[in-house]
Amino acid sequence: MQFFFEVLIAGLLSGVMYSLVALGYVLIYKASGVFNFAQGAMVFFAALTAVGLHDLGLSLWLAVPLTMVAMIALGLVTERVVLRPLVAQAEITLFMATIGLTFFIEGLAQAIWGASVRGLELGIADVPLDWLLDHANMAISQFDLIAAGIAAVLVAALAIFFSKTKIGRALRAVADDHQAALSVGIPLHHIWGVVWAVAGFVALVAGLLWGARNGVQFALTFVALKALPVLILGGFTSVPGAIVGGLIIGASEKLAEVYIPPLLQTLFDTQMNLGGIEGWFPYVLALLFLLVRPEGLFGERIIRRI
């Protein structure tokens, strides 16, 4: 039982970080109707740039703000060069364009910084927390806890930013109806610029946290890809959905990884190594979920009119 909770909590903690990545997608989708497949590449780019600058001898306190500037620039350029010419195109066309963007950003990051794996040290040790080990006899990583804490604060801050600030309101208006928002005088491109910048910031935080945890490497893009099943569960337009979806995916994939292989081994009476279920479990879970509730947990049910 104890072990179960250990796995569950570790899963939930990584789930918070999935939520963080997923939030980047939700932001852009809500504001511009673009499903930005390149969010994962942005996470990778941010982490690699921060580490690259740090390795050049800059302190993290300098490297991170510089990366932030780079991310904002990347976001603005993307908005200007890729999305503006494609405005009013079919959703699926925009989606494919962001797949192209993904490749471009990944190539750019590696062209600048090289393709080797780099370590990132944020000064938080990845060791079990003593207090929990003593009192509950559970091994929960200190790093995961702090990372999840940072992610949670950021998620909360963004939720407030959206619901309380003037720019947040404008953003929701834009999401609802571009034309109407334009007609009441909301500067559309300005808003999109802000959104891409915020999404860049979210990518940076996610990149630093995941990068410090797993090393800054190409595989980060696969971590970011896991945000897709999160979004399918939570609905593409819902901030709470991204959070809950992230937690579900994080917890269930860890539990599946631990409990399903032995189950399969007894079931089929085999000694095969069936690990690595984490790699596909979230996607299959999301797929099955789609069959039951295509609009996601918190998405709006769409009545199609003809």
Partner: peptide, 9 residues
């Protein structure tokens, strides 16, 4: 990678 990406776009 960059060439592929930009060509797609």
């Amino acid at each position: 990678l960059m060439a592929f990406g930009s060509l797609i776009i």
